[in-house]
Design a protein around this nucleic acid. Structure first.
Lengths: 209, 209
DNA sequence: TGACACATACCGACCAGTTGGTATGTGTCA
DNA sequence: TGACACATACCAACTGGTCGGTATGTGTCA
């Protein structure tokens, strides 16, 4: 019937569909509560396809963490918070950007790897490592700006850029937990505001902006 | 053989043994990866005993969260950080106390309800609510000191005690996630130090102490 | 060009073990 | 005697994972 048109909807492939489905489902109910059958159903593929692409459920977990790293790093790389000329402004704009992301349902803004590592840190070292790499890798993208800001504002001897970068991630991860507990983003925005205030205080920048 | 001596080790009861076992196991592998059979084996009781005391695994989850609330509130109520006369000193001593608790294996210092709420916020509202109550209840114990400190140091119009109290919990929960990801407490101590520094900056207290 | 060899992607029935949960029995103590 | 605390035996549904098979490329060489 249809002519040569490559394909109705891009084939996407079972692997990609499974990975996309995994992000949503695992963020909603966690890794171990997510069954392979459920993943297949959501992705519209069969179990055979699943085990063709992933040698085990654990391997899917690792792949999902890596997929998450790629997806998010693209989002952050192209985000507008890199625009300001002042490095401290960029750091603060990052926090603002993270705050702006806190919209919609809790499962839409929370972090896949933060969720997965909670369940898997003792039972799967490869998942734990993939999650660690994702978090640390993202934190590392902040270090240069923090470092430059510390130099520019003369407090390089008072702060450790790597430590502060990781701390921003801790605050956000904790904010997600509170958001899950309270069923909404409000509390998370609150914590993000505290984080921003901390950074401003550290750099002696006044509240007004 | 043995005489009337009540019992070798206090009977404890299946319920208490199950609850104690639940704290340890759920903290290491999460709620859904923890099976009823495993819980029974660890507690040294049978499945019949389990379902005699808990109408479902979900009910055990709620009871475990409540048990956690009671256990931890006793720990904190009798802790020495309440001693200082100055309310700000008490708040800072609280953070120090939490930092001092960051010892041993990750599964020994992380938070049961923080772990559980991640997996259950969408699938079990009663577990979610029990976790929320645990976290918020603990945060509430900090409010009075924060509030008094804010008045004493003349910044009552600049901070919201409830919000700051909850933020301390967010930081700690996030620190636990990073500790799980990195496999050690060091990173968590780092974030706790940032939290302390934030509070000192908020209250205009110098770094020296 | 066409035929052969092989690879990749996927299907869906099937398996053994485990899951949460139930039904019924038994010992103990007031 | 009866209520309670637990034990034993069991079940249906589901779990992650395997397996034999097929359809569709893709590279190679005569």
């Amino acid at each position: 019937m249809d002519s040569i048109r490559p394909l109705p909807n891009p084939p996407a492939g079972a692997r990609a569909k499974l990975l996309d489905a995994a992000l949503g489902i695992i963020r909603t109910k966690g890794f171990s509560a997510t069954s392979v059958d459920e993943l297949c159903a959501a992705a519209g593929v069969t179990k055979g396809a699943f085990f063709h692409h992933f040698q085990s459920k654990e391997a899917l977990g690792v792949a999902a963490a890596n997929h998450w790293s790629i997806t998010t790093s693209e989002l952050f790389a192209t985000a507008p918070y890199h625009a300001p000329a002042d490095p401290l402004d960029r750091v603060l704009a990052y926090v603002d950007f993270r705050t702006a992301l806190l919209e919609g349902g809790v499962e839409e803004f929370t972090c896949l790897v933060g969720t997965m590592v909670q369940e898997s840190y003792q039972t799967s070292d490869i998942i734990r490592a993939a999650c660690e790499a994702s978090i640390s890798g993202h934190a590392a993208t902040l270090e240069a700006d923090i470092s430059a800001a510390a130099v520019k504002y003369g407090i390089a001897d008072q702060i450790d850029p790597a430590s502060l970068a990781l701390h921003t991630q801790a605050v956000l991860q904790g904010a997600f937990i509170l958001a899950k507990a309270k069923g909404g983003a409000d509390i998370a925005r609150d914590s993000a505001a505290h984080l921003k205030r901390y950074i401003m205080l550290l750099f002696n920048r006044g509240e007004a902006r």
